[in-house]
Simulated assay, not measured.
Amino acid sequence: MKITHYLPVAACIGALALSSCAADKTDATKLQVRMTDAPGDFQKVSLDVRQIEVHLKDEQDPNGWELLPFTPQALNILDYVNGRSALLVDTDFAPGDLKEIRLLLGPNSTVTTRDGVTYDLKTPSGQTSGVKLKLNKATLKERETFQLLLDFDVAKSIVQRGKWRPGDDKKERFILKPVIRVIAQDIAGGLRGTVTPTASLPQILAIRASITPADTFSTSADASGGYQLSSLPSGVYRVEFFPTTTAPANQPVYKNVVRTDITVTNNQITELGQTKLD
């Protein structure tokens, strides 16, 4: 299969790591893997994803592949455009270098054109040897969050056969030749602030709803009312504050508070100041 790579880049697609890949939680890194797409002139593009492997050793070592437990599924990648992404992995993973990713596609990928007709997507080698993506400087460090984004360019990836004409076999119209941009980054954004009254014992949720499924991160305020959420992906968040106890008699009732349009930037801590729950 012909694949276009953009370097230097790193990416991964998969699901929960095998126990052989996982580390003790005190030393593990948090690995997040997402898929996003550049828009194309189609109604639907369904990728039949069957199997994911990651290569952890030297490229020439045939024993370096690790199979990732991934539930086979069909992904309509056109659901994940304009900043939306599909969360495929959110798991603890052993620190170290990732060398290569292999994505095995099944025979049931399809494309639906604007007129509502669905065609098979032929994948010349994806069902056998798989789609391989080389990783450049993809190093997972202890107690950090590492995000790997597979950016699929559907407009360039679906090729129509030049000799195909209406009335020909529908299975022969389109070929899938993935054009993929792969991106990797350490996630080091965060939110910080205080909550009063401290007696409300609040829980804090930071929700990034622009992706699918939505990211939700949680913490609780300490005895002084302070809190910090670390390792947040950059984006716009809704932050929700929930008292976990009731106010004493003759005092204002504790209430839930929601703050919207909170921007998190990678490698920066966003200060939220004080939030009052009474």
Rank of each mutant, 00 (worst) to 15 (best):
Q43G: 13
L133A: 11
Q228D: 04
F242N: 03
Y80R: 01
A94T: 05
Q127M: 15
Q127W: 11
G189T: 09
I13Q: 08
F93L: 00
D278V: 10
Q185P: 02
Q147A: 11
D186V: 12
L98Y: 05
F217L: 08
V195R: 00
D222P: 04
P95E: 08
K255Y: 09
K25V: 05
P72E: 08
L149N: 06
F242D: 10
D92S: 09
S230F: 08
K163N: 09
V81A: 08
P202D: 04
P166W: 03
G226F: 11
V236K: 09
P69A: 11
S210C: 07
P233N: 12
T265E: 11
P95A: 07
S224V: 05
V253K: 15
L277N: 03
G162C: 00
T145E: 10
W65R: 00
L56A: 00
N76I: 02
G235H: 10
D153Y: 06
I183E: 14
A214M: 14
L229T: 01
L98I: 10
V159N: 04
T112A: 14
V236A: 10
Q274D: 12
S218P: 02
R192C: 09
L121T: 01
D41K: 11
C21Y: 07
R259D: 06
H55W: 00
K132S: 10
G226N: 15
Q160K: 14
P72D: 08
H55Q: 02
A10Y: 03
D261S: 11
G96Q: 00
I187F: 15
Y6M: 14
S234E: 12
Y6T: 14
Q147E: 14
V154G: 06
R173A: 05
L121V: 09
G96E: 01
G106R: 02
L67F: 05
G116W: 09
N250R: 10
T219D: 02
L31H: 10
R114N: 12
P197A: 05
D37Y: 03
T260D: 13
I180M: 06
T244C: 09
A38F: 14
W164V: 05
L272T: 02
L135P: 00
L140W: 03
Q251C: 02
I13C: 13
